[in-house]
Every structure is written in C-alpha cells, then in structure tokens.
C-alpha cells in the first residue's frame, strides 16, 4: 500500500514555510499514519527538497498529521526562483510514499 491509498493531502505556504496536511480517509488508519508517515520518511521520499527544520503535528481528533517544512520554499513565494514558488505540488508527491508492513509492500 501507498500513502495515497489511505490518506489525502493538501499543501499550503506561509513565507518560506511549506505546510502539508496528511488526512486519513478512515480515522481507523490514523495509527498507521502515525507509525509510517514520520518526518524522516517524508524527507527521505522528498529526496531533493532541502529544509531548515521539519515538524510533525498530530491531530488524533481529525485523524490527521500536519507537516511544517521550514525553509522549503527557496525564500518564499515572493522571491523564489522556483517554477512552483508556492510549493503547491509538493504534497501530491507523497501519494506514493510506501507504507511498510502493509499488503503489497516489498520492504
């Protein structure tokens, strides 16, 4: 299984910070999100992204995680040279994050 099989994501920006929410379709899968979607796993998957600091906030009531990636936006939308200065396309790239120990995962 991949992250996109059990969760949906939305990406926002605030200055030089990218924010990615990861939300379980079924709250019962929140425990799997907690275990598998760690800061390390996210940064490993987004291998060419550089950040100053990354924080994961846990929202059990919503069955969601909120990732705050500081320094991810090349100085922020107003001065970034990047094509996607807002980083809007970032969260979607986590849809194929493998969920280890689930059906269909080789690792």
């Amino acid at each position: 299984m991949q992250l996109g099989d059990i969760a949906h994501l939305r990406t926002g920006d605030k200055g030089d910070i990218s924010q990615v929410s990861v939300i379980a379709y079924d709250p019962a899968d929140y425990a799997l999100l907690l275990r598998e979607v760690t800061v390390d796993r996210v940064l490993t998957h987004l291998a060419t992204l550089t950040v100053r600091r990354a924080t994961r906030y846990e929202l059990p009531g919503l069955g969601a995680l909120n990732f705050v990636l500081e320094g991810a936006l090349n100085g922020g939308v107003t001065r970034s040279l990047a094509l996607d200065a807002h980083g809007k396309s970032l969260g979607a790239q986590l849809l194929d994050l493998p969920l280890r120990g689930t059906i269909g995962d080789p690792s």
């Binding site: 949906h8 994501l9 939305r10 926002g12 920006d13 605030k14 910070i17 924010q19 929410s21 939300i23 379709y25 906030y57 929202l59 919503l62 969601a64 909120n66 705050v68």
Partner: peptide, 16 residues
C-alpha cells in the same frame, strides 16, 4: 468531511 478537514489545516502551522 474530507474537503473541510483539508481546509481546516490549510496554511496552519501549529494547530494549537
């Protein structure tokens, strides 16, 4: 529910 959850967390850093 899904669209509301996404927007609730949109551009929120510390939800607390």
């Amino acid at each position: 529910l899904a669209s509301c959850k996404e927007q609730l967390l949109y551009e929120i850093l510390d939800p607390g």
